[in-house]
């Protein structure tokens, strides 16, 4: 039931956001159209009721200071957690790559020897220790490991280690 007017025009009129010309046209129409008058009254009443009850909702759901502070603490805890996870990410990625190398070597020379080989390769590389192996010194570390693996696991084993380390 919108007669000569669009839903947008009716909405703007009821919410008092309409331009003067359209407002005059709507008012000239509803004076002579009972159904539009009644429709306008229903819509205006509904709008006013929503405005009043909406304000009531804002008061009803007001938050106590203590809950607000608890919320703020929780947000900062989440932010710190997210930032820590972001910092840990490269370390975890390196650890996964080291684990993958150990897993390739273990069937060929045993898991303890594989771990020792990784440590030895790190010591003779710019990383100096397994704990300091990073993305930046990965290639020289892998080159050292390949040399060690060549002796321990043979040429094919060394190539496998190299390929795994590069993936």
């Amino acid at each position: 039931m919108t007669h000569l007017f669009s839903e947008e025009e009716w909405n703007d009129y009821i919410e008092g956001r309409i331009d003067d010309e359209t407002r005059d046209r709507i008012e000239a129409h509803i004076i002579g159209c009972l159904s539009c008058w009644e429709f306008h009254e229903r819509m205006a009443t509904a709008t006013r009721a929503l405005v009043v009850c909406g304000a009531g909702m804002r008061v009803a759901f007001a938050l106590q200071d203590r809950r607000l502070n608890a919320g703020l603490r929780a947000v900062f805890a989440k932010i710190n957690e997210a930032e820590a996870a972001k910092l840990d990410q490269p370390l975890r990625a390196i650890q996964q790559r080291l684990d993958a190398l150990a897993a390739v070597m273990a069937p060929m020379c045993g898991s303890q020897t594989a771990t020792k080989a990784l440590r030895a390769a790190a010591q003779v590389s710019p990383a100096c220790s397994l704990e300091l192996v990073s993305e930046d010194n990965w290639t020289p570390f892998l080159t050292s490991l390949k040399t060690i693996a060549d002796v321990m696991c043979g040429e094919t084993g060394a190539r496998l280690v190299w390929e795994r380390g590069q993936s």
């Binding site: 839903e7 947008e8 009716w10 909405n11 009821i14 229903r42 509904a46 929503l50």
Partner: peptide, 15 residues
């Protein structure tokens, strides 16, 4: 505006 109008139209008799 269209959605607001229709939602209010639906609510008017309920209110």
């Amino acid at each position: 505006k269209w959605r607001l109008f229709n939602a209010k139209k639906k609510l008017a008799p309920i209110i």
